[in-house]
């Protein structure tokens, strides 16, 4: 299929593994899905300390299940990417370990304490959910297929995140102060979740033309703010004065003042060069390397005698 046919036919779940897709499409889809899959893994990675640190049995169960789901989402997404024929799952996981795999900005910062957890579990996961809901209509069918299951599971994550937020927001004065502090720390990163407002992303237009993306970053950010700013206010959280966010009622639009955000840091993050993000990547790589021997042990064909598992 040539590129103009792709653009013409682009629509929800339009293309699958049996379609002969042009390389540009397969590369763009791989880049997008691999980014998404990597983000699931690295998101799980920053949440994982709170399985141990959860302050009740039920919370521990829920955080463990959330981290597990994220790994499951990674599994589903790598499959959707693998089907494009550009990279295998092993290659993508190796790239992530080597610091070459890209992932969401927020997951480059470690979570300091329990008060910061809902910043990820509620706001960041909520933002991710906002984006994912629109990807049910992506043109690469295996991607949409994975998104179906992800959205099915993810709702519980955000609800649990909100439950933690509610508990802290209605707790002691000290709880409220520490929660507000966590919010102020994370808010600029959350605003940057959807990238720069004037779309400096070079891949963006193409992705929309071929139906991989169905909504611009700008519209996604706006929809997110529409849904989640009132939630923040409901729990008594006040957005810091800077970065400025102004609501324009006439256009039903939130204006985020670009110049108030640290884009140097954002692009440092995007290059995997932020020291904290680098630390996360390296720590994860070390734990991956440490179990390489297991993968070897189960994946190498027996040296002698034994019949390989595949039937004849």
């Amino acid at each position: 299929m040539d590129l103009s046919t792709v653009k013409e036919r682009a629509g929800p779940r339009q293309f699958g593994p049996t379609d002969d897709m042009p390389r540009e499409y397969r590369e763009a889809a791989t880049r997008m899905i691999q980014f998404h899959a990597n983000s699931e893994i690295m998101g799980a990675y920053i949440e994982r300390p709170f399985v141990r640190q959860a302050p009740s049995l039920d919370r521990k169960l829920a955080v463990s299940a959330q981290v597990q789901d994220e790994i499951g989402h990674g599994q589903l997404l790598y499959r959707a990417a693998e089907n494009l024929g550009i990279k295998t799952r092993e290659e993508m996981l190796d790239e992530l370990a080597a610091g070459e795999g890209k992932f969401l900005n927020c997951f480059h910062y470690p979570l300091g304490n329990w008060y910061e957890l809902p910043m990820i579990m509620f706001f960041v996961d909520g933002a991710a959910m906002r984006r994912q809901a629109t990807l049910k209509r992506t043109s690469w069918e295996p991607y949409a297929h994975a998104i179906d299951k992800i959205c099915f599971e993810e709702g519980f994550h955000i609800k649990h995140g909100e439950d933690i937020l509610r508990e802290l927001a209605t707790g002691s004065r000290r709880d409220q102060e520490l929660l507000q502090r966590a919010f102020e720390k994370w808010w600029p990163r959350i605003l940057q979740f959807f990238g720069p407002t004037d779309d400096q992303s070079t891949h963006d237009d193409f992705s929309q033309e071929v139906g991989l993306k169905t909504m611009s970053n700008d519209d996604l950010r706006n929809a997110f703010l529409n849904a989640y700013l009132p939630k923040a206010e409901k729990y008594g959280l006040e957005p810091p004065e800077y970065p400025r966010v102004e609501y324009h009622e006439d256009r039903d639009h939130y204006e985020v003042y670009e110049e108030d955000l640290d884009w140097d840091e954002f692009f440092t993050v995007a290059r995997n060069e932020l020291p904290t993000g680098r630390g996360q990547i390296d720590k994860r790589r070390r734990s991956q390397d440490a179990v390489a021997w297991v993968r070897e042990a189960i994946e190498t064909t027996p040296a002698s005698g034994d019949t390989p598992a595949a039937a004849d």
Binding site: M129, T134, K136, E153
Partner: peptide, 21 residues
């Protein structure tokens, strides 16, 4: 699962996910 997720309403996707569950 239905895929008609219009935007605008508050965190509709969360409600949808919940309904599925």
């Amino acid at each position: 699962w239905a895929t008609n997720y219009s935007t605008g309403r508050m965190a509709e996707e969360i409600e949808a996910s919940e309904a599925e569950q």
